[in-house]
């Protein structure tokens, strides 16, 4: 049953798309009908999937690296007071610079290969993870800390056994946002300069008026983004088995 609803929504959207194409008479080089896109998917499948694989790797590496760096920064910020005074302003200022504006520089520095795209994705993920996790680490229930103190806990064991587990729900929200935005980093990086990946393929196809291929690439990108989000979400729900969620209750 749970698969039926998304399937109906998906087919419904395809139908609306098809109807718009028919009703408006828009030419296929502006908006190709769904069946043309699927035709392109089938005919150019090998090329599309080899580029999709590159983009997927960039997103996954960026996500892993951004999450790792973000978590370490949040832990450093919460553990060392001086770090907070020095790093927090830098962190905030760094967010004032649009990451997209850095893309050409990253490509210049790190080359046309995968590294500059991973760096883009990492940069875009870093802040939401750091901010959310740090916020969680700061908001430990004071009573829990009092209890730990009367139990003669060291600072390190409080961090490990109380602060970190208590901050995991906040960390999870940060990671969900990060997962949703990670593909943007990879694609923008590919647009600025690359020789492979879905972003490159889209620009390339656009230049040759292969609009059906462009849409096919877009479709694969959407599937990757959605699949990644649900995989991360499922993993987080497993990790946070104890945290009561209210997503199913009415607001």
């Amino acid at each position: 049953m749970s698969i039926a609803r998304p399937l109906i929504i998906f087919l419904g959207l395809l139908l609306i798309w098809h109807l718009i194409v028919i009703a408006s008479g828009v030419p296929p080089y502006i908006l190709p009908a769904p069946h043309l896109v699927f035709q392109a998917l089938a005919e150019r499948g090998d090329i599309l999937f080899s580029h999709a694989w590159i983009t997927l790797l960039e997103i996954v590496f960026g996500l892993a690296l951004g999450t790792l760096l973000g978590s370490l920064s949040a832990l450093t910020l919460s553990y060392y007071q001086p770090a907070r005074r020095w790093l927090m302003p830098i962190l905030v200022v760094s967010q004032a610079i649009p990451v997209f504006a850095l893309a050409p520089i990253l490509v210049l520095w790190l080359g046309y290969g995968m590294v500059s795209k991973v760096a883009m994705a990492t940069l875009i993920i870093y802040f939401p993870v750091t901010a959310a996790f740090f916020d969680g680490l700061r908001r430990t229930e004071p009573g829990h800390l009092d209890l730990a103190k009367t139990m003669n806990a060291t600072r390190w064991s409080v961090l490990r056994h109380i602060r970190i587990p208590a901050a995991l729900p906040a960390f999870a929200s940060g990671l969900r946002v990060a997962t949703a935005v990670a593909p943007i980093g990879a694609i923008v990086g590919e647009w600025v300069g690359s020789s492979e990946g879905l972003g490159f393929l889209m620009l390339h196809a656009n230049g040759r008026m292969q609009i059906d291929v462009m849409f096919a690439a877009l479709f694969i990108l959407a599937v990757i983004a959605v699949a990644l989000y649900y995989a991360v979400d499922a993993g987080l729900k497993r990790l946070l088995f104890w945290s009561s969620e209210t997503t199913t209750t009415e607001l």
Partner: peptide, 9 residues
């Protein structure tokens, strides 16, 4: 304390 302070995890 008044709250049980049990760790929910």
């Amino acid at each position: 304390a008044q709250q049980d302070l049990l760790m929910p995890w």
